[in-house]
């Protein structure tokens, strides 16, 4: 468990990792990664109950599934920074022969990754299977998943959302990153989805709002509440309102940086806004 200052320091360092990773290979997805940095840093350090090391079955520990695999930069950085693999390996992101593929995969056996993701809309189904396996194994630990809001336009999600409540999968906490942006523009412009909260509630989920999804204290409080709602016969959804590109001013509040890397000058500005705290890789 880290204190709030430690979490903030780690968040800043992860932001630097993200910017440097995508800059080096001039590709990758910084916007959504930066928006979910506080969440994943907090989740892995203070919310999930994790064992030392990594084994695929993950019996006796909480599990996490990233469904919106394009935010691999933040995922990889957090996995490395909490000790699943050496932080130096972040320098191989998207390079030939790397375990850090453009989108996460188990294929290269990178510790911490339990499923490939990137083709959207599949992660909740996988998380459901893992949650049901936990129940069969008498394992009281939880399964967490993260999804983009635009990703909810994929129909498979709604199969999974319907199934989760019907089968009372109440050891699952699925978080939706509500940044309101997707590649072609705002979600309201591309395909308005109405109230995501009302939809999840109509499908029988318990819904927790985290209005300030880039505020570590708000995340801690919201996720503690989400945890307290598990085991009550219903799946739990967290609606995490975030700012895409958070922490790098020119990347914020726009879809422009969904899948674009900063140039040298932009990198320097971004790094200046996020001073080194724990040492660059």
């Amino acid at each position: 468990m880290l204190n709030t200052q430690q979490l903030k320091d780690l968040t800043t360092q992860v932001r630097r990792d993200i910017l440097r990773m995508v800059h080096k290979v001039n590709s990758g997805h910084p916007g959504g990664s930066l928006g979910c940095t506080e969440f994943l840093v907090t989740l892995y350090n203070n919310i999930m109950d994790r064992k030392e090391g990594f084994d695929m079955d993950g019996i006796g520990e909480d599990l996490f599934f990233l469904s919106n695999g394009h935010i691999s930069p933040v995922f990889y950085s957090v996995l490395a920074r909490v000790g699943y693999f050496p932080v130096e390996e972040l320098s191989t992101f998207r390079l030939i022969d790397s375990r850090l593929q453009g989108h996460p995969t188990t294929h290269e056996e990178l510790p911490g990754v339990r499923i490939a993701s990137g083709s959207l809309g599949q992660g909740m189904s996988v998380a459901l299977g893992a949650a049901q396996a936990k129940k069969m194994n008498g394992d009281s630990h939880l399964v967490y998943s993260l999804h983009g809001d635009g990703e909810l336009q994929e129909g498979q999600n709604w199969e999974a959302i319907m199934y989760a409540s019907a089968k009372k999968v109440d050891n699952l906490i699925s978080t939706i990153d509500l940044n309101g942006q997707q590649i072609d523009g705002s979600t309201d412009d591309v395909l308005p989805m109405g109230s995501i909260k009302a939809k999840f509630e109509a499908f029988g989920w318990i819904v927790i709002d985290i209005e300030e999804g880039n505020n570590i204290d708000a995340i801690l409080k919201g996720m503690a509440e989400a945890k307290s709602k598990t085991g009550q016969g219903k799946p739990v959804c967290v609606l995490l309102k975030t700012v895409m590109g958070n922490g790098v001013d020119f990347m914020m509040y726009t879809h422009e940086w969904h899948g674009k890397a900063p140039n040298d000058e932009q990198l320097a500005i971004g790094l200046a806004q996020n001073p080194e705290t724990l040492g660059d890789y």
Binding site: G58, Q122, V126, L128, G129, A130, A133, M136, Q156, M162
Partner: peptide, 26 residues
């Protein structure tokens, strides 16, 4: 009965759930 999962008419979800069930040794 406890080892059977009726998914409903949702094959995409079924394949994902099957993948997830392997994580935990099924």
């Amino acid at each position: 009965p406890d080892r059977f999962f009726q998914i409903g008419i949702a094959e995409a979800n079924m394949m994902g759930i099957a993948a997830g069930l392997t994580i935990g040794g099924k």
